[in-house]
């Protein structure tokens, strides 16, 4: 089951969706007023980045980079494992940052009774 067929269509879909996700995420983060919606936007940006990172590592007709017993002697062309390792770390860091951000949102709500970013402006000038 490999993505052999017409490559340029797949380029458009994978790169296209990744960049679309990044842009939609950024739009949400920059325009929406609710803190949670901003964080949703940021997590969508993270997903877009991760998709982009993995799709960069893809190789036409390559299999997963695992030398399972079935495939160990045939040594087929393998997909690039390095971006996968990076994405693994990036996903977990993305989650950690989102968790801390949401904790901050709870704390802000406790104090300001609102999650609207325009109303949380004690520190200015």
């Amino acid at each position: 089951m490999s993505l052999g067929s017409n490559l340029d269509l797949l380029t458009v879909t994978f790169y296209g969706t990744a960049i679309a996700l990044i842009l939609i995420g950024l739009y949400a983060a920059l325009v929406k007023r609710s803190l949670i919606k901003i964080l949703i936007g940021l997590s969508i940006v993270d997903s877009g980045i991760n998709l982009l990172l993995v799709s960069i590592g893809y190789l036409k007709g390559g299999t997963a980079p695992i030398f399972s017993p079935a495939v160990i002697d045939k040594n087929p062309a393998m997909v690039d494992p390095v971006p996968q390792a990076l994405v693994l770390t990036a996903i977990v860091i993305g989650f950690a940052v989102t968790a801390v951000a949401l904790a901050l949102v709870i704390r802000l709500y406790r104090h300001h009774k609102t999650v609207n970013i325009d109303e949380i402006k004690n520190l200015k000038w």
Partner: peptide, 9 residues
């Protein structure tokens, strides 16, 4: 995209 580890994560 042949990245099972990442899919699981």
């Amino acid at each position: 995209l042949q990245a099972p580890d990442v899919a699981l994560t």
